[in-house]
Design a protein around this nucleic acid. Structure first.
Length: 587
RNA sequence: GGUCCCGUAGCUCAGUUGGAUAGAGCACCAGAUUCCUAAUCUGGGGGUCGCGUGUUCGAAUCACGCCGGGAUCACCA
C-alpha cells in the first residue's frame, strides 16, 4: 500500500480528463510530475508539482492550471482538501479513514506492507565479497559483505529475482603462493623444522590445519619433490579449504550466497571461455595489438613499453584501452572478469550489480565499458563501491599490519560484537562515504547507539503487546487479537498521528532504496521510526492518558495495540532487509 | 599529473534522484525528573550547503572550472 502511488494514479486520472477536455495537449508528457510528501508537514499530506510541470505545455500560468486540477481532485474520494500554494504546488490532505487503512495494512500479518512489485520478477545478479581464497575474510571485506547481502535482500523484497554470487579468484598468482605456503605447513606437519615463513608466503596459522590434512592425505610422498609434482594438487586442496573457512566466516555474519563461480573454471573448462570472449570481441573489432601510453605524470620506474593485446575500452567511455594478456602469456584479471561477466549475461542476467571495495574504484570504468561491449549495451551493470572502514578502539585507530599477519579478521569482529551490530553499523552510512567503527560505541547500551535504539523500540513494543496486555487487559491478548475489529478513529493524539505518517513513508523509502541500490536509507528510516515510538512512549510518562495501555479503556488500548503492531512489524520488516534480528527483549 | 569518491551546524552524518523557510544525533545552553511502560525527558541557540560561473519558474542536488581531503593509477588481484 504505497500512499503516493495511490494518489499518483488519482492524479493521472484527473490529468487524463483534462487532456480529454483539451486543457492539456494530446501529447502532454507526465514524466516530470512528482507526487511526494511536502517537506513541511503543515503544507499537507501530499504535494504535487503537476501544475508547474505542465504549465508550459498547457500554455497557462501554473496557478491557473493548478486551479483546474484541484477542482477535479476534490471530486475524488479520499481527498479532504486540495490547496494551491507557492509557485503552483498543489497540497492535498487526506481523511483519517485513509490513514487508518495504512495502519491496518502495516499491522496485518497477511500482507507484507513494504513489499512491492518494482522489479516485476526481473533477474538480477548481485556479486559481492569475491575475495581471493587465500585466507579467512579480512575485516576490510566486512562492509562489502553486509552491503551486498542487504542489497540482495532489498531487491528481493522489491520484486526482483535475485541471485547472490561470489566470484572465486582462484586462477591468479596468489593461489600458487597459497599452495606453496600450504606446502611449507605440510612439511611442518611431517615434523620438519620450517623456521620463519619466508617473505612473500602467507604466514597465518590458519594454514597449519591444511598442512596437517595434506600430510594425512598424502603422507610424505611429496617431501623433497619438485613443485611440478605437487603444486596443482596442493592448490586445489588449499582453495577448497580456504573456501570452507570463508563460507563459515560469512555465515557467522549471516551473509549467504546462491552461487559460487570459479575463475579457473572459465579457463579450464571444455571451452576456454576467456579465449572465447576475446574471440567474440575481436569479431566485433574491439581487440587489437598495440602499445599503451605510460600513465601521465609520474612514470613507474620499471615501465616497460611493449605491444600487448588490448580491448578498446575507450570506445565505451574508459580512459585508456586495457590489456588482456600479460607478459608471461597468461590472461589478465580483467580478461577473465570480462569472460565472467559475459557468462552472467548469458545466464540471462540483464541487470548486474558488482559490489567492490574502495581500492577497486579505478576498475569501475573499464568494467562498465566491458559490460556495454559484451552485451551490446543491453545489460545494466551497476558498480557499488564500499568505502573504507576505520576501526577505533579506546578512542584510537586500530593499526593493522598485513606483513606480520596480524590483520584483523571478519570473524574476530563478529565474535566480539555480534553480527547484528556489525551489520547495522555498516549500513548506517552511505556506501560511498568512509565509516568509523568504534568497538566501544557500537556496544554501548544507550540511546546514543543507533543499533540499540532501534532494537529497543522493537523490544519495548513486544513487552507491551505480549507481557503487559495479557496481564492488564486479557481481552486483548495477541493470540486472539483482531486488528480489523478495533476502532482506529480514537487515534487522534499528535504523537500517534506522527507514527502513522511515518509508517506511511515505509513503502516509499523501500522503493527509493531499491531504485538507488542504497540500503542505508532503510537504516535511517528505522532510526526515525524508532525515535517516533520512543517519543510517544516518553510522553506517556508525563501524561498517563497517552500510555499505550490506557487504564480500563479497552477501546483506546485496542486501537493503540493495532498501531503498535504496525510499528513493530515495520521495524521487523526493515531490520529483516538489513539482516538484523528484531529482538524481542533486551538482555 | 589522470581518474573516481567525499566536502552540509563546533563534531559525526542524512537530505525524498531539481521543489516551498536545508534536517537528525552528539556537544553546548536553559528547564523538568529519582518517577518507573527499566537503561532520563522537554525546549533553545547554532548554516555563505568548500568557492565561482552556468542551465530554469526553482539548484545542497544537474554541467563546467577552481580549492581542500581520501582512494587508485601498464603488467597484480
Amino acid at each position: 500500500m504505497n500512499l503516493y502511488h495511490h494518489f499518483g494514479e488519482q492524479l493521472t486520472s484527473v490529468l487524463d480528463a483534462l487532456r480529454d477536455q483539451g486543457v492539456l495537449p494530446p501529447d502532454a508528457d507526465f514524466t516530470r510530475i512528482t507526487v511526494e510528501p511536502p517537506r513541511d508537514p503543515s503544507h499537507g499530506d501530499i504535494a504535487t508539482n503537476a501544475a508547474m510541470a505542465l504549465a508550459k505545455m498547457a500554455k497557462m500560468a501554473p496557478r491557473d492550471l493548478a486551479q483546474k486540477i484541484t477542482e477535479l481532485l476534490l471530486q475524488l474520494p479520499d481527498i479532504d482538501s486540495a490547496k494551491i500554494a507557492g509557485p503552483g504546488f498543489i497540497n492535498i490532505t487526506i481523511p483519517p479513514s485513509f490513514w487508518q487503512k495504512i495502519i491496518l495494512a502495516a499491522a496485518n500479518a497477511e500482507i507484507s506492507y513494504g513489499r512491492s512489485e518494482l522489479g516485476r520478477g526481473q533477474k538480477v545478479n548481485v556479486e559481492f565479497v569475491s575475495t581471493n581464497p587465500t585466507g579467512p575474510v579480512h575485516v576490510g571485506h566486512c562492509r562489502g559483505a553486509v552491503f551486498g547481502d542487504a542489497l540482495a535482500n532489498l531487491l528481493d523484497y522489491s520484486g526482483y529475482d535475485v541471485t547472490r554470487e561470489y566470484y572465486i579468484n582462484d586462477a591468479g598468482a596468489q593461489v600458487d603462493v597459497l599452495a606453496r605456503s600450504a606446502y611449507l605447513r605440510y612439511l611442518e606437519a611431517l615434523g620438519e623444522d620450517i623456521g620463519e615463513i619466508p617473505d612473500g608466503l602467507y604466514p597465518g596459522d590458519y594454514l597449519k590445519p591444511v598442512g596437517k590434512a595434506l600430510a594425512d592425505k598424502f603422507g610424505d610422498q611429496f617431501k623433497g619433490q619438485k613443485d611440478a609434482e605437487w603444486l596443482a594438487a596442493f592448490r586445489l586442496f588449499s582453495i577448497v579449504s580456504m573456501m570452507d573457512i570463508i563460507r563459515a566466516d560469512l555465515k557467522a555474519l549471516n551473509v549467504r550466497f546462491d552461487v559460487f563461480s570459479s575463475e579457473r573454471a572459465l579457463i579450464e573448462g571444455k571451452v576456454n571461455m576467456v579465449e572465447d570472449t576475446i574471440d567474440d570481441l575481436r569479431s566485433k573489432g574491439l581487440i587489437y595489438e598495440g602499445v599503451l601510453p605510460p600513465p601521465k605524470g609520474k612514470l613507474p620506474d620499471d615501465w616497460d613499453e611493449r605491444e600487448q593485446t588490448l580491448f578498446k575500452a575507450t570506445e565505451f567511455g574508459d580512459d585508456v584501452d586495457r590489456a588482456l594478456i600479460k607478459a608471461d602469456g597468461t590472461y589478465t584479471y580483467f580478461a577473465a572478469d570480462m569472460a565472467y561477466h559475459r557468462d552472467k549475461y548469458r545466464r540471462s542476467f540483464n541487470k548486474m550489480i558488482d559490489v567492490m571495495g574502495a581500492d577497486h574504484s579505478g576498475y569501475v570504468k573499464r568494467m562498465k565499458a566491458a559490460g556495454k561491449a559484451l552485451s551490446d549495451g543491453t545489460a545494466e551493470l551497476d558498480i557499488k563501491i564500499c568505502q573504507l572502514v576505520n576501526l577505533v578502539r579506546n578512542g584510537k585507530p586500530v593499526k593493522m599490519s598485513k606483513r606480520s599477519g596480524s590483520f584483523i579478521t571478519l570473524r574476530e569482529v563478529v565474535d566480539e560484537v555480534g553480527p547484528d551490530v556489525v551489520r547495522f553499523i555498516m549500513l548506517y552510512r552511505k556506501n560511498d562515504a568512509t565509516l568509523e567503527f568504534d568497538f566501544d560505541k557500537v556496544q554501548e547500551q544507550s540511546k546514543d547507539n543507533p543499533v540499540f535504539y532501534v532494537q529497543y523500540a522493537h523490544a519495548r513494543i513486544h513487552s507491551v503487546l505480549y507481557r503487559k496486555i495479557p496481564l492488564e487487559m486479557p481481552d486483548l491478548e495477541m493470540a486472539s487479537f483482531e486488528p480489523l475489529k478495533q476502532d482506529l478513529s480514537v487515534l487522534t493524539d499528535s504523537g500517534e498521528l506522527a507514527l502513522v505518517k511515518r509508517l506511511a513513508q515505509y513503502p516509499r523509502i523501500v522503493e527509493q532504496a531499491a531504485k538507488t541500490h542504497e540500503p542505508h536509507r532503510i537504516a535511517f528510516y528505522l532510526y526515525e521510526l524508532a525515535a517516533d515510538l520512543h517519543t510517544q512512549w516518553n510522553r506517556g510518562t508525563e501524561k498517563p492518558e497517552l500510555r499505550f495501555i490506557s487504564d480500563g479503556n479497552k477501546k483506546v488500548t485496542g486501537a493503540r495495540a493495532v498501531l503498535l503492531l504496525a510499528v513493530a512489524k515495520t521495524l521487523a520488516s526493515g531490520l529483516e532487509i538489513l539482516g538484523v534480528h528484531p529482538i524481542e527483549e533486551m538482555r
